[in-house]
Design a protein around this nucleic acid. Structure first.
Lengths: 155, 155
DNA sequence: CCTAAACTTGACTAAAACACTCAGGTATCG
DNA sequence: CGATACCTGAGTGTTTTAGTCAAGTTTAGG
């Protein structure tokens, strides 16, 4: 699994804006320079973040971008969805093309796996806030594993 | 985040071979037909799984593929690594290109996030076995979230 | 032995996704 | 009113994905 550049950049931009919180808005040009991201690409990513309502903007001279809400109210799943459309693409519907019996029906071995992974990722990103990200000793959601004890009920 | 077709197919093939465990080996042609995967692509994927030592093969007429070990000893991370090379690509080294200060050094906000996500995914796949997958009431690793309590130490 | 079944291996290719770039437009401040 | 800075859609080169193709080698069974 990979992280796309736009997601990496988007998160860096969010962190940079959050660190400036309260002061004057940050221009795309300054963000681009500081984060070492091509200007046009920066603009595109900022526009997506704005469309998703996670940052706000002010036009004209002296304008720029600032957070739409305080850092602890912004969860990272919003950022992921803003830039990629979803946290985890639905695998089952994508490969449900078999002629007589669908490979992801009730008897399917894989759908529970993908469903769990989707839930896991969704919880990971939704339980991490922007405030967690910009903390000096950063904290993201902590996750504990319970090994799959033999008869383990599905959620 | 997405699941590639080769990973989806690879897992389906593993599950199909596991269900046949003990009987005669399954030929690529039969697997291809049953799982509705193009034959040449099936061959390619089976070859990768074999190279990774997760299945074994017998050549010649009557040959085919079977598991290299019992289902409960095969963890899914082996399958992912066999087909994609790694569980989670290292983001930090990929984007460490800044001129004066690296964006993923000690002061970086993002590296803990990606490190945690990498750990999370690795634990998810390594704690799910092929046996979990082919169970009628399937069980993958259960994951519990502990919301990021305010001063939360990094692992 | 010899032929058909079946795996082995590498090279090739079309299509999609990704990572940008470009070109204009619109609003706001001083 | 003009410079600053956001707004928006369209275009493009590169890489990855998802397969295809072709020419092997090995083995079982008649």
């Amino acid at each position: 699994m990979k992280i796309t550049s736009s997601l990496e950049y988007g998160m860096r931009l969010m962190a940079a804006i959050a660190k400036e919180d309260g002061d004057a808005p940050l221009s795309a040009e300054k963000l681009s320079r500081e984060e070492n991201i091509p200007l046009d690409y920066t603009n595109q990513i900022l526009w997506k973040l704005k469309s998703a309502g996670v940052i706000s903007s002010r036009r004209g001279s002296g304008g720029g971008y600032s957070l739409a809400r305080p850092p602890h109210e912004i969860t990272m799943d919003r950022v992921v969805i803003a830039l990629e459309g979803s946290i985890f693409e639905d695998v089952c519907s994508k490969y449900a093309d078999a002629p007589r019996e669908c490979h992801h029906q009730s008897g399917c071995s894989l759908s529970p796996l993908w469903r769990r992974l989707g839930t896991l990722l969704a919880e990971f990103f939704s339980s991490t806030t922007l405030e967690d990200l910009i903390r000096r000793e950063p904290a993201t959601a902590r996750v504990e594993f319970i090994p799959p004890g033999r008869p383990l009920p599905m959620r």
